[in-house]
């Protein structure tokens, strides 16, 4: 199973340079995304963890406010809030409340920064953390983000973000240890 995934990932990586992507397309998408000021969506997340026999599902709501506020409110199986504002992550889980700079947890940084920067259409921030591959067109697009930072790269292999128009539909984080999570997003009006 994981061998298959690995091969698929390699295939994707090898194919990447061949895919025609244009800087213009990416910039156009980013500037359209930047115009979006707020967002509210439901999410369902599948976690594929090697240690566990079957994927674990979590779900909840996402809130976004340009340019740097993102809140992921998990409702199932246990309530948990993850909020990022101005580079500081706040985690609330039960009685535990913690705040820390985004960089402290690379997995978190990958998920948060890739999603926040994409939502904000913040190309420079995205380019600071990742090398970017673009596929598709303005209507249906997919970004392949590969970490540049060594610490980040030690934990995260790649982040895939796909969307329709100016809406994000799926975020997939692939860890270097083979674990991955797939987040499906359903925008709310």
């Amino acid at each position: 199973m994981s061998e298959l995934l690995r091969r698929a990932a390699w295939a994707a990586l090898l194919l990447l340079p061949a895919t025609a992507w244009s800087a213009d397309e990416l910039e156009a998408l980013m500037s359209r995304l930047a115009a979006q000021r707020t967002g509210h969506a439901l999410f369902t997340e599948q976690h594929y963890v090697a240690l566990l026999e079957r994927p674990v599902q979590t779900s909840g709501e996402l809130f976004y406010e340009a340019p740097d506020r993102l809140e992921k409110r998990t409702l199932q199986p246990r309530p948990e809030t993850l909020r990022v504002a101005a580079g500081i992550v706040h985690v609330e889980s039960g009685r535990i409340k913690r705040s820390m700079p985004v960089q402290r947890y690379p997995e978190l940084a990958a998920f948060i920064e890739s999603m926040r920067a994409t939502l904000a259409g913040d190309l420079p921030a995205l380019q600071k953390y990742f090398s970017i591959g673009f596929e598709g067109d303005q209507q249906r697009w997919q970004l392949q983000l590969t970490p540049l930072d060594k610490r980040l790269a030690a934990a995260i292999r790649q982040v895939h973000i796909s969307g329709v128009g100016i809406e994000l539909r799926r975020v997939e984080v692939q860890q270097t240890d083979g674990d991955r999570s797939v987040t499906d997003i359903q925008p709310l009006p």
Binding site: H47, V56, T58, R78, Y105, P106, S181
Partner: peptide
Amino acid sequence: QSSIDLLVSPAGALIEPFM
């Protein structure tokens, strides 16, 4: 169960090596 929930949460990296 609580640890599994934590494992798949944003702070999962905390518990993963000791699971």
